[in-house]
Design a protein around this nucleic acid. Structure first.
Length: 244
DNA sequence: AATACGATCAACCGCAATGCT
DNA sequence: GAGCATTGCGGTTGATCGTAT
């Protein structure tokens, strides 16, 4: 479990690490769907996740974000990665911006597992890479400016382009629709509604109480501002006591 | 059938950049 | 400008799975 004792015997939560469960994905998607991305560091507790903001961000960016492609890279994508890598080097995020629907992590993995060997074993590709590296310096600053603008466009796209009908959307259990980036933690009333919608009372009662989130409630007093579905049903949560 | 090995990929970690007070 | 919080990035790790022995 993610409950520990300090040397003084006080109860303390530790953040969860490792693979994300379907339940956690569902919470993250539902929360961002409703409130948008307003602050990665603070958002996990409002979303009922025992994760670091970093972990949430990574999960969202690399796996849950609307519009992400999954599955094998096409020939064209491969060519693009090789091409842009020859110009940009290991600047994975910059390369990712050139390949819509692919995350930097995915491209980086694909490079290390597949493409790197191909380039190393192919003198022609190797040579063209060297040549490209030489000219890359001169165009780099220009590229950066363009990429910055693309960042803005990309962000705008994400917020408004996706619906649950997207073929590439992976998690099957999340029948939520991405509306827009609202960008706020929500009011107490909002959050109460959010939780009650996400976990209808009947469903909540049927659930196994052992689940991480719900167990936390047992130690509620030991935690600082831990939020659970229960706290909303019992009107325990006071948002004014939490600093953002 | 058991296990050793390599490939894959999700996730972590540390650090740098940026923003805010 | 200092100090702190937050975000973003790239290198790396480790769990898992398929294949070979």
């Amino acid at each position: 479990m993610h409950v520990m004792r300090t040397p003084k015997g006080e109860m303390k939560t530790s953040l969860k690490k490792g693979a994300w469960s379907l339940e956690e994905d569902r919470k993250l998607i539902a929360y961002i769907n409703r409130y948008g991305i307003w602050n990665w560091s603070h958002m996990p507790k409002y979303a009922g996740l025992l994760r670091s903001g970093k972990s949430c961000r990574l999960r969202w960016m690399n796996y849950l974000k609307p519009g992400l492609k999954k599955g094998s890279f096409s020939k064209e994508e491969e060519q693009n990665i090789l091409h842009f890598h020859s110009i940009l080097g290991n600047r994975w995020s910059a390369i990712a911006r050139k390949l819509p629907g692919r995350s930097d992590n995915e491209i980086k993995n694909y490079w290390h597992t597949t493409l790197k060997k191909r380039v190393t074993n192919n003198p022609v590709l190797k040579g063209s890479k060297q040549e490209s590296m030489n000219i890359s310096q001169s165009i780099e600053s220009d590229n950066d400016e363009k990429l910055d603008q693309e960042d803005v466009n990309h962000a705008n796209e994400i917020n408004f382009s996706w619906t649950s009908k997207d073929d590439n959307y992976t998690p099957k259990d999340n029948q939520v629709e991405f509306i827009a980036d609202i960008g706020s933690p929500g009011t107490v009333e909002d959050l109460q509604y959010f939780w009650k919608e996400l976990y209808p009372l009947e469903e909540l009662e049927e659930r196994n109480i052992d689940e991480d989130m719900f167990l936390d409630h047992i130690f509620q007093d030991s935690y600082d501002h831990t939020i659970t579905p229960w706290s909303f049903y019992n009107d325990e949560y006071d948002i004014t006591s939490t600093s953002i």
